[in-house]
């Protein structure tokens, strides 16, 4: 197995044509921001280069209300980039595709505005991504276009439509009692 830094450098080269910006959040990791439209070619390039395996897809709800979050400030700096690189000045979603290769983790980050929360399915390249995409759809309400199966994976069949539990505005019905234990309310 090649060492972690070599693996990351190699992965970085593979996705270079679609890279907007890269970050190294911690040792052994590389975060690569790509535009939503470039996601599929970047994933295909990693897969065809046999660079590791898709370990997980994380969806993040990034609230935009109030003061700009540090993420938003960071994203604003991308404003000079053509097509705004999927920046979300008013908050939105971020979808993280974590590829693992030994100890190395390369994360493709796609930023989606709240008004246009849609990302293309990567199942045409990695069929096993379907479970992660189904989770993304039902938990965060992010539309995954061309995904082979958008049925509920985890939520009950009778779960109300348009209610997405991992969005920040959603509060579980029993969250009040949990907050009560801490002597405060989240509402």
């Amino acid at each position: 197995m090649m060492d972690t830094e070599t693996a990351l450098a190699q992965g970085s080269n593979v996705v270079a044509p679609w890279t907007v910006v890269t970050q190294t959040p911690e040792q052994g990791r590389l975060d690569v921001v790509v535009r939503p439209t470039d996601l599929l070619p970047a994933v295909r390039a990693l897969t065809e280069a046999h660079w590791g395996y898709l370990s997980a897809i994380t969806g993040l709800d990034v609230p935009g209300a109030g003061q700009p979050t540090p993420e938003e400030k960071q994203w604003e700096r991308l404003d000079g980039v053509p097509e705004h690189a999927g920046t979300v000045p008013m908050g939105g979603f971020e979808v993280l595709y974590h590829f693992c290769h030994g100890a190395a983790v390369l994360t493709l980050r796609v930023r989606l505005p709240r008004t246009q929360a849609a990302v293309v399915s990567i199942c045409s390249v990695i069929p096993t991504a379907t479970v992660f995409e189904r989770e993304l759809i039902e938990m965060l309400g992010i539309e995954v276009t061309e995904t082979p199966n958008s049925d509920h994976l985890l939520l009950p069949d009778d779960w109300p439509s348009g209610v997405y539990p991992l969005r920040k505005e959603f509060h579980a019905p029993d969250a009040g009692s949990a907050a009560g234990e801490q002597g405060g309310s989240h509402q």
């Binding site: 479970v131 539990p165 991992l166 579980a172 969250a175 907050a179 234990e181 801490q182």
Partner: peptide
Amino acid sequence: AIRLGYVHRGIEKAAEERNYVQ
């Protein structure tokens, strides 16, 4: 075909609403 979620307890959400020790 696979369908999961029968023991889905919303732990990821619950974790956001509790502190690190909890």
